[in-house]
Write a protein that binds this DNA or RNA. Structure first.
Lengths: 223, 223
DNA sequence: ACCTGAACACCGTTCAAGT
DNA sequence: ACCTGAACACCGTTCAAGT
């Protein structure tokens, strides 16, 4: 037996980008965005943090690959039927629900355009807009409007998820938010005061659908 | 003369949250989000990094205060006239242009709801929706739809700004994005391929306005 | 070719010590 | 009350050294 510090055994099963991405998703889902570090990831994969860089360019690359994996699954499972308008609702709800279960996906979509997941969503929405009979010249704007609305909600939901745990009473928290918004000068915030009650107990998913419907109604006026 | 390391002089002009926020805005505007560190801020203010914490809770507090300052100025300068629909366009464009000149504001809005700036925008939009005659029960959803669309665009623009400098040819960059989206299986991306040409040379501001108009058209169908 | 883990160059935040 | 700046506990990323 020697005194020299023993190097760890080399891992038997080869690492791969897929395995790394799956491990990252597991960490993100169970412990949140902040918990995903290369050290935590390396520990979970029983390897050195540097090994990950052999398969993944950097943290942004890793996050985009994880987001793409989730969105791919969602898109594969979305049931497109009952006409193009309902199909768009289904696609949008698919993304919404994915963000609900994987809030970090929301942050990623909202803050990183040009990733593969964005192309997938755009494609799915665009095809349904064509089926809906939206004139060709208006299709890009219509798709981008729906997409941007979805991304806006995505960012907000990701932020809301970051509070989970720290905030136990959602209504009380939202009440304190509304109070802070209006406190600088209550007479300056008549609208916020009016909707404060609805803010406290509104259903995010239902409000999301209402927004999609509003944009669809607007698209319906296009000729 | 002593050999003891000389402590720096104590600053003559008192620090204040306002002064700190202004310095932060200057750093964010000239050198970008990544350049705002407590060390850089302390250097610019000729103080210790710890001093900043006497006036500001943490980095999030600082960023929210900076965002609120910018949005307050924008809202004070927005000209509301020509009827409620045009006023909503003016408010939205005000936010869009603010994000264009201060991209970090976009990132902040997209990723941090419940900050004061959000209350300001919501209030301004809501009041115009009331003037537009939107039925009371639909006002909250309508306002939230417009707001979320704006936040979606905000996040994308902030991300686009992060590339400035690194990317010199916008068209070439967007072409490579579209190519990457479709390359996995070109036959799976007919819509993206169709709009790729528009993607390359579309005007962000004009597309933003088209989205606002689409939502306004949808709101017009509400009764 | 792929993996290991120490080392580097940073962060935000805290806090004892000063005025 | 307010300020100073070293110290702490982290990060992402690199890279010489291993297999």
């Amino acid at each position: 037996m020697t005194n020299k510090t023993q190097r760890s055994e080399r891992r038997a099963d080869a690492l791969s980008k897929d395995k790394i991405v799956e491990a990252a998703i597991a960490i993100l889902d169970t412990d949140g965005e902040a918990a995903l570090t290369f050290r935590a990831l390396a520990a979970r994969l029983s390897t050195g943090s540097g090994a990950i860089y052999w398969h993944v360019a950097d943290k942004s690359d890793l996050l985009m690959a994880a987001t793409d994996a989730i969105i791919s699954r969602v898109m594969a499972n979305v049931v497109v039927a009952d006409g193009p308008a309902n199909s768009i609702r289904a696609i949008a709800l698919g993304v919404f629900d994915a963000i609900d279960t994987h809030p970090w996906v929301g942050a990623q979509l909202a803050g990183e355009p040009w990733q593969a997941a964005m192309g997938q969503i755009l494609e799915r929405i665009g095809r349904q807009l064509q089926a809906l009979g939206v004139p060709q010249h208006a299709q890009f704007n219509a798709a981008s409007s729906l997409l941007n609305f979805i991304l806006g909600v995505a960012g907000q939901n990701a932020a809301a998820a970051r509070l989970k745990g720290r905030v136990t009473d959602r209504s009380a928290f939202l009440a304190s938010v509304a109070a802070q918004w209006t406190q600088r000068d209550p007479s300056e915030y008549p609208f916020v005061r009016q909707v404060a009650a609805q803010l406290l107990d509104h259903d995010d998913r239902q409000q999301f659908l209402a927004g999609i419907d509003l944009i669809l109604a607007g698209i319906g006026t296009l000729r």
